[in-house]
């Protein structure tokens, strides 16, 4: 158990080196410091891509933990709670209303809109009977579906389907180069914010009664959690497109082993998420080399399998 974090770190470093080395252009890492071309490939393409994958995997997994504490249900993620579709809706709106708007305005629009739709999800599930554990993910899927349909409709009308596709359908990293992924650091920062609120989020998932009894302002923690989930998702959606499953599967796997003491488990969640996504990205790059598969496809297969396994191996009391 104690060796696990160390082992995970070693594996992560190995995978990062692999990620830096693998690609169509042959690059000798050791020679890079005196080979300007190799250095260019490394700094402009390989390193940004590797960092983008790590940040996305870590931040989405942390966002998954946060949304699961907010709704007190393990079977949701930022991709099934209306959040990604909300971000896309915000991006569409700002693209149509303020053409050529600066990037920061687009980020704010995407985050704010994602926050509204996720709050809508919370409002919907608050009315569901608590014991019906499976109604929550179903409600999330339905809401995501409806919002996704709206996005598609508006995108179609405004002739922006190409963008909608890159935001919601095919999250992938092949287009990542220096200068086009840095927003993901904001996602990383938002995820780090969750760690500072780890105790509060853990207490919130004990229920409103316990949280209030311990003197917690549940509304404040809710807002903070919403902000984290919305900002992480909005940054990912705009930069690389939504990545499915990771925010659902990683929190579940880690909780199974470590439990829900978030102060201890969130760093592990972040590292595991980075690890899983990097593995999938490497598979996506190598499976039909020199061509690439979308990483979402690999994750869909792997994540779907893990999710089915989780459904059949639920802990005794859910």
């Amino acid at each position: 158990m104690r060796l696990l974090p160390a082992a995970a770190t070693v594996v992560l470093v190995i995978l990062m080196l692999a990620s830096l080395l693998i690609g169509v252009a042959q690059v000798d890492l050791l020679a890079a410091w005196r080979d300007p071309y190799a250095m260019l490939v490394l700094m402009e393409s390989r390193l940004p891509r590797t960092l983008a994958v790590l940040l996305t995997g870590a931040a989405l997994s942390v966002a998954g933990v946060v949304i699961q504490s907010l709704v007190r249900n393990r079977f949701v993620g930022p991709d099934t709670s209306g959040t990604a579709e909300g971000a896309a809706l915000g991006l569409l709106a700002i693209t149509i209303l303020v053409p050529g708007s600066p990037i920061w305005l687009r980020m704010i629009a995407a985050s704010a809109s994602a926050m509204v739709t996720t709050a809508l999800f919370l409002a919907v599930i608050r009315r569901l009977p608590v014991r019906e554990v499976m109604l929550v993910p179903i409600a999330g899927l339905v809401l995501s579906g409806v919002l996704g349909a709206i996005v598609t409709f508006v995108g179609w009308q405004a002739d922006l389907m190409q963008y909608v596709g890159t935001w919601l359908m095919t999250g992938e990293f092949s287009g990542v180069i220096a200068g086009r992924y840095e927003l993901l650091w904001i996602a990383g920062l938002a995820a780090a914010l969750a760690w500072f609120a780890a105790d509060r989020l853990a207490i919130l998932s004990l229920g409103d009664q316990v949280a209030t009894g311990l003197g917690l302002s549940t509304a404040t923690v809710m807002r903070l959690g919403l902000t984290v989930v919305a900002v992480v998702t909005a940054m990912v959606v705009t930069t690389v497109g939504m990545i499915p499953f990771i925010g659902l599967v990683v929190p579940n796997l880690v909780a199974r082993v470590m439990g829900d003491n978030l102060r201890a488990s969130l760093p592990v969640v972040a590292v595991s998420g980075a690890l899983l996504l990097l593995t999938c990205d490497l598979v996506a790059r190598l499976a039909v080399y020199p061509f690439e598969l979308p990483v979402g496809l690999i994750l869909g297969i792997l994540g779907g399998g893990i999710f089915l396994w989780l459904l059949h191996h639920r802990p005794a009391h859910g």
Binding site: R72, D199, A202, S205, G207, L214, G215, L216, N261, G318
Partner: peptide, 16 residues
């Protein structure tokens, strides 16, 4: 509760 906490962690939240 649906949380997967250890007994000591739950009791520890009483000090929060």
């Amino acid at each position: 509760i649906a949380s997967r906490l250890r007994v000591a962690e739950l009791v520890g939240f009483g000090r929060w």
